[in-house]
Measured scan of single mutants.
Amino acid sequence: HHHHHGSGALAALHAEGPLAGLPVTRSDARVLIFNEWEERKKSDPWLRLDMSDKAIFRRYPHLR
């Protein structure tokens, strides 16, 4: 159930192989992290948004 927010940013994801479903670039990863943060913020208003490279690598090590 993907609803768009204002920016309408869509992340490019790997379609197949071992990385299927994972973001292709760091900016794609940022979109995913932001979208998930927006969702989680509803139940956790104090949740901090962390889109640093460090956060991205921790989450998606293949982007190193």
Rank of each mutant, 00 (worst) to 15 (best):
H4L: 09
L19Y: 11
G17A: 03
W37E: 01
L10Q: 15
W46N: 15
I56Q: 00
E36H: 05
R64V: 09
I56S: 00
R30G: 04
R30P: 00
A12L: 14
V24W: 03
G8L: 09
A12Y: 09
D28T: 02
E38S: 14
W46D: 14
L63H: 00
L47V: 13
R59V: 08
G8Y: 07
D50Q: 04
H14S: 02
I33M: 12
H4M: 11
G21Y: 03
L47P: 06
R40A: 13
R58K: 15
S27T: 11
L19T: 03
M51G: 02
D44K: 07
R48G: 08
E38F: 15
D53W: 09
E38R: 15
L49S: 01
A12I: 12
R64M: 12
L10H: 14
Y60R: 00
L22N: 03
D44M: 06
R30V: 06
H2V: 13
E36M: 05
P23E: 00
E16A: 11
R40W: 06
L22T: 03
L19E: 03
P18S: 07
Y60H: 01
W37S: 02
H14K: 02
L47H: 12
N35Q: 15
G6M: 15
N35L: 15
K41N: 09
L19R: 03
G6S: 13
S7Y: 12
P23W: 00
S7D: 13
L13Y: 04
E36G: 02
K54N: 13
K41Q: 09
H4F: 09
H62F: 02
Y60G: 00
S43V: 14
H62Y: 09
W37I: 02
P45Q: 09
L63W: 00
E39P: 02
N35D: 07
I56E: 00
M51T: 08
R58A: 15
S7M: 13
I33Q: 02
I33N: 01
S7H: 15
D28F: 03
D53K: 07
S27C: 13
L63F: 03
P61W: 05
L32F: 04
A20K: 15
L32Y: 04
L49T: 04
H1V: 12
E38L: 15
F34V: 06
H5M: 14
R30W: 06
L63N: 00
H2P: 10
G17F: 03
E38A: 14
W37P: 00
E36W: 05
A12T: 11
L22W: 04
M51A: 06
H1P: 11
K42F: 07
I56V: 10
A20P: 02
N35H: 13
W37T: 01
H14L: 04
M51C: 11
K42I: 09
E38Y: 14
R64P: 04
I33V: 06
E16H: 10
A12S: 14
D44W: 07
K54L: 10
K54V: 08
H3C: 13
R40E: 08
R26T: 12
A20I: 11
S43M: 13
D50G: 01
G21H: 04
R59Q: 10
P61V: 02
G8I: 10
K54W: 07
R48C: 11
L47I: 11
V31P: 01
L19G: 02
A55D: 05
L22P: 01
Y60L: 00
M51E: 03
L22K: 06
A9I: 15
R48S: 08
H5A: 11
D53Q: 06
H2F: 12
L32S: 03
A12K: 14
E16C: 15
R64H: 07
K42P: 06
T25R: 06
E39N: 08
R40S: 10
P45L: 06
L22Y: 06
P23K: 00
F57P: 01
A9Y: 10
A12R: 14
L49W: 03
V31A: 09
F57D: 15
A12V: 12
H4V: 09
G17K: 08
P61T: 02
V24K: 09
D28C: 05
A9K: 14
R59Y: 06
H2M: 12
R40F: 07
K54P: 07
N35F: 15
T25K: 05
L22M: 07
S7Q: 12
T25I: 01
K41E: 04
A29I: 00
S43A: 12
H5K: 13
A11W: 02
S27A: 15
P18C: 05
S52Q: 02
K54G: 10
A12C: 14
L10M: 13
A55W: 04
A55N: 11
D28G: 05
L47N: 06
R58G: 12
G21K: 03
L13T: 09
V24A: 05
L22E: 05
H1Q: 12
S43E: 14
F34C: 07
A11C: 05
R58H: 14
N35Y: 13
G21S: 05
L19D: 04
G21L: 03
E38C: 13
A15E: 14
G6I: 14
D28W: 02
D50I: 04
G6H: 13
L10R: 12
I33Y: 02
F34W: 12
S43D: 13
W46V: 09
R59C: 06
L10V: 15
L19P: 02
F57V: 12
G6E: 14
R64F: 09
E16W: 08
I33P: 00
